[in-house]
């Protein structure tokens, strides 16, 4: 199986690559259009800042490519956010795969911290990505969130309920880092690879 991990200016891609290797996959880390188009699965990972990430994707014309793919596609963390319509981070128009807005968490009430950092449960989850899991605990690190909408397939609650998982056709996304989320996260990656 050919798995492409999209190469762009987002940090900590190495953890995703190692997680895939632990599952017996040798992913290719690339921004090459032909290699991405030819892959059986595409993973869009990352950590970073929305406006500079989108600027890079546009410069490489990856924005057009990524939203017209047909194979299973998985966005992780900022990957999920960039798949939405717009992000408040840097007032950035994003890929628009999901018709959703990404907002900054409101000023937290006492005892809440920002970033939302640590293990939180994914609830009301459905669809193939979380098959075999029951309210899994996953590792989150983020200060912006995607609002709830018709494509929401899992809800995470922190300060307010937001989209912890999204799906539209072949496009899947999770706000947490499955590559860092122990056995539950590994199950999500296994489910994705089995699509």
């Amino acid at each position: 199986m050919k798995v492409a991990v999209v190469k762009y200016n987002a940090g900590n891609v190495q953890s995703v690559i190692y997680a895939l290797e632990r599952l017996g996959v040798e992913p290719i880390h690339t921004d090459d259009h032909d290699l991405i188009r030819a892959a059986d699965k595409v993973i869009f990972p990352g950590q970073g800042e929305a406006s500079s990430a989108m600027a890079y994707l546009r410069a490489q014309r990856l924005d057009q490519l990524l939203k017209h793919l047909e194979q299973p596609f998985l966005g992780i963390c900022i990957g999920l956010q960039l798949m939405c319509e717009h992000s408040e981070e840097g007032d950035t128009p994003c890929l628009g795969i999901f018709d959703l807005k990404v907002k900054r968490f409101p000023t937290p009430p006492e005892s809440y911290k920002i970033p939302h950092m640590g293990w939180n449960s994914l609830k009301e989850h459905k669809g193939p990505l979380t098959q075999g899991l029951s309210d899994p605990y996953l590792y989150y690190v983020h200060s912006y969130y995607a609002e709830l909408g018709g494509d929401t397939v899992g809800i995470t609650d922190y300060i307010l309920p937001f989209s912890g998982a999204l799906q539209k056709n072949n496009y899947y996304a999770v706000q947490a880092h499955p590559e860092k989320s122990s056995t539950d996260g590994q199950k999500i990656l296994t489910n994705f690879l089995a699509l």
């Binding site: 190495q14 953890s15 190692y18 290797e21 632990r22 590792y139 590559e179 860092k180 989320s181 122990s182």
Partner: peptide
């Protein structure tokens, strides 16, 4: 460590 461990 990163190759082996799946927690942060």
């Amino acid at each position: 460590v990163a190759q082996k461990i799946n927690i942060p």
